[in-house]
């Protein structure tokens, strides 16, 4: 399948999955989100660092990493800038008896980022897997707040990155995040075939 077609099919499937994620988050936090179609792109692992530098102009970024296993396997990295992390606080904790003025600790911020990334990861990837007739299981995630987002490409066992740029828009309070699905050549081929099958048996 040619790259463009692949991207079109994947975009729509991810769009559907992201709708589920948005609804889950909105419902959990008793809020309403204007749905935005996520932006999908494919990049080679060597260009990941450049992509991140261009996308995050802040010094430090929150990142969570989580492995997933199954017929389709790899690792998801979710990255969020501090401004979005701050916006998220108002949404997650609005339903709890939290003093509005109280500053949240670094741990509480991390806790809520883990929560959002868990929901986005499981719904986007879990639902995608379901649409492609398979199942995946997630390993526990880890979180970091640092300047160095990732290992160098040479240290990573992956060759492909699918970048999903998401916006959760709660009354113009935006939480922007980038979900990086990293996989090997072999897994990428599996995904291509699965998407072709999906299109054929539509």
């Amino acid at each position: 399948m040619i790259q463009e077609e692949l991207q079109e099919v994947l975009s729509e499937l991810i769009n559907i999955s992201f709708g589920t994620a948005t609804a889950t988050i909105a419902e959990l936090f008793d809020n309403f989100a204007t749905l935005h179609v996520p932006d999908i792109s494919f990049i080679a692992i060597d260009d990941l660092h450049k992509f991140i530098l261009n996308h995050f102009n802040c010094q430090q970024v929150y990142t969570t990493t989580q492995q997933f296993k199954g017929k389709f396997q790899g690792e998801i990295v979710f990255a969020m800038d501090p401004q979005s992390a701050q916006n998220m606080q108002g949404i997650i904790f609005s339903d709890e008896d939290l003093d509005g003025a109280a500053l949240l600790s670094q741990d509480e911020i991390k806790q809520s980022i883990l929560e959002i990334s868990n929901i986005l990861g499981s719904s986007c990837l879990g639902k995608l897997a379901q649409l492609l007739n398979t199942n995946i299981t997630f390993a526990p995630p880890a979180i970091e707040f640092s300047q160095t987002l990732l290992k160098t490409p040479a240290e990573m066992p992956y060759q492909h990155v699918i970048v999903i740029s998401t916006v959760l828009d709660f009354n113009a309070m935006e939480i922007r995040g980038n979900l990086f699905i990293m996989c090997t050549d072999e897994m990428f081929s599996w995904l291509e075939r699965a998407l072709e099958d999906y299109l054929e048996t539509l």
Partner: peptide
């Protein structure tokens, strides 16, 4: 026909006069 499965979105389009809301796909 939408990926937006939030109850509030569904209520909104029903109020605008849609016959039904269908979840994608």
């Amino acid at each position: 026909v939408t990926a937006d499965i939030q109850t509030k979105s569904q209520e909104k389009v029903m109020a605008l006069g849609a016959v039904a809301v269908e979840a994608k796909p």
